[in-house]
């Protein structure tokens, strides 16, 4: 719909008035044959009801409407119009083609977003500033955040529940597979392969460790130390079918020939650096898994792997 004639200085030429809304043409279109011009919005509204020219009833369709000629648009753009916010105090007369740009930055626009400088720094429409209360706004904000947190907690616990359910199911499946393995040799192979894969996957999740002082190795750790390491392995998702074997292999009596006595260890010392060691997180201990160390001589590794506990010297 067009602009109110009263917003313009002096009389506006009749040619620039939309015959539908009787305002000054806004975004004008023209009928193809009779060349009568109307506001685009007014004309769309009319043509939806009746496909004719509103002045002379020539049949026309929406697709036939043309943009108004340049001269008409130029005449319109030269008119000076009062700002939309003149009731709020804006005294400017703006050229019609600059109106949009002006409105975006008009400081009299009651809805212009401004930043609160009383402390809360929220961005609010200017006309709401008068009744603005930082404490109340922030309190509302906290309340809505609080609701979000509660909602997220609820979701979290729900997902935790689902996760536990799935873990339980996986556990059942594993038990089931183990039972099948016992009764079927092919299944046994498959299951062993899967277990080996599981160990390899677990190994990939652990960080590489570097031993700086091989001399710090404790070849005969006590029960307490062993329990502590075992708990850590379990916390870090060590596959349950290898954890006991691994822990048994933390003592020199279970170590392979190349490691099982002080004497053989002295002989193998030079090869220590070739080990691929994985860190037991947070502990002065490393895991030497068989699957990571197939390059080592046979008397230096053992299935599924061994644990070496140190007094110090692990990075």
């Amino acid at each position: 719909m067009g602009f109110d004639v009263n917003r313009f200085q002096g009389p506006v030429d009749e040619e620039l008035i939309c015959p539908i809304c009787s305002g000054v043409l806004q975004d004008p279109v023209q009928a193809p044959d009779c060349e009568h011009a109307f506001c685009r919005l007014c004309m769309n509204e009319w043509i939806n009801r009746q496909p004719t020219c509103p002045l002379d009833r020539t049949p026309i369709t929406a697709a036939q409407l043309l943009p108004a000629p340049r001269i008409l648009r130029n005449l319109l753009s030269r008119l000076r119009i009062k700002c939309d916010n003149f009731v709020h105090g804006c005294q400017q007369d703006i050229k019609l083609d600059a109106l949009m740009a002006h409105l975006e930055e008009c400081e009299y626009n009651p809805k212009r977003p401004i930043t609160c400088e009383q402390g809360c720094s929220l961005i609010i429409p200017k006309d709401e500033m008068k009744n603005h209360n930082c404490v109340r706004e922030l309190r509302n904000l906290i309340q809505s955040q609080h609701q979000n947190v509660t909602e997220m907690r609820r979701e979290l616990s729900e997902q935790q529940f689902q996760l536990n359910e799935q873990k339980r199911e996986i556990h059942l499946l594993k038990d089931f597979m183990r039972a099948m393995r016992v009764s079927n040799p092919i299944m046994r192979d498959i299951a062993e392969q899967m277990e080996r894969d599981e160990v390899a996957r677990w190994s990939a999740t652990l960080p590489r460790a570097r031993v700086t002082r091989w001399g710090g190795m404790i070849s005969t750790p006590d029960e307490l130390l062993q329990t502590m390491i075992k708990r850590t392995l379990s916390e870090y998702n060590c596959p349950p079918h290898v954890i006991n074997e691994l822990m048994e292999n933390c003592h020199e009596r279970k170590w392979p020939a190349g490691l099982n006595s002080l004497e053989t260890r002295q002989n193998s010392r030079r090869q220590y650096e070739s080990y691929v060691c994985k860190r037991v997180p947070g502990k002065q201990a490393v895991i030497v898994l068989h699957c990571d160390n197939t390059h080592m001589p046979e008397d230096m590794t053992v299935e599924p792997g061994l644990v070496m506990i140190f007094a110090h010297g692990i990075e």
């Binding site: 719909m1 004639v5 009787s22 509204e45």
Partner: peptide, 14 residues
């Protein structure tokens, strides 16, 4: 929108 046009038009036509 339509109501606005109606009032504006009637004032002018009056």
């Amino acid at each position: 929108m339509a109501t606005n046009i109606a009032a504006q038009r009637i004032k002018r036509e009056f």
